[in-house]
Design a protein around this nucleic acid. Structure first.
Lengths: 107, 107
DNA sequence: ACTCTAATTAGACCGTAGGCTAAATAAGAA
DNA sequence: TTCTTATTTAGCCTACGGTCTAATTAGAGT
């Protein structure tokens, strides 16, 4: 799971809303597309973005495609974000930090 | 707290790394800037993005500016993301969901 | 007042994300 | 096979994000 790709995917209101809807159960691409006021090709790119992040998966069902959440990756993303944002809760910041001497590769 | 702005802010490796560093304690803008291989003005825009999301706050200290994490907003962001990604863990998806009849405003 | 340092703002450039319409693909139905 | 429906791909356009250099603001010290 790449946190970068996941955050990229979450960084759009429609895509977040798709995730919220899929919490209630799988839906076809067409049914999802009807819920928003953008064209179907545009929705298709949103699906692609979410698939790219592995947050959703699509199964062919006849002529339609049924999308469902990928629970595993959603959980992984959560714990990664907890590591990022929640780390401060347990270790309060009292002292001034000093910068690393070397130019690190940032994730 | 606007989840949109927060995710926007988190959607860059340098900005995530800044947050990670500030977990260890406050740092000046200059000290943070030295840690990455981009220009200081570029770093300044990253600080602005994080400030816009209220994830960090800057205090003037003489000629420098000391940035520190805004724990409150980080926690709020976490619970918002848990609501988004973690909702499926408790309520498993078994049935096919039906689309909402009205074109809703998505958050 | 002048100067030095720290940080931001201004302005420009480039790449990519998000949107559209039109065309292509895939699968069932006639 | 041909038609129809569902979805994606292709091509294009616009807007915005990330980066840079150069200029500007703000403070502290001399």
């Amino acid at each position: 799971m790449k946190i970068n790709t996941v955050l990229q995917a979450l960084n759009h209101p429609i895509r977040r809303d798709i995730i919220a809807r899929l919490q209630n159960g799988p839906m076809t691409a067409g049914a999802l597309a009807e819920a928003y006021d953008v064209s179907k090709p545009t929705m298709s790119t949103h699906f692609a973005s979410l698939k790219d992040a592995d947050l959703i998966e699509g199964k062919k069902a006849g002529v339609s495609i049924i999308y469902h959440l990928n629970i595993t990756v959603a959980e992984e993303a959560m714990s990664a974000l907890m590591g990022l944002l929640g780390g401060s809760i347990t270790s309060p910041q009292t002292q001034m930090a000093t910068p690393e001497p070397t130019k690190e590769e940032h994730s």
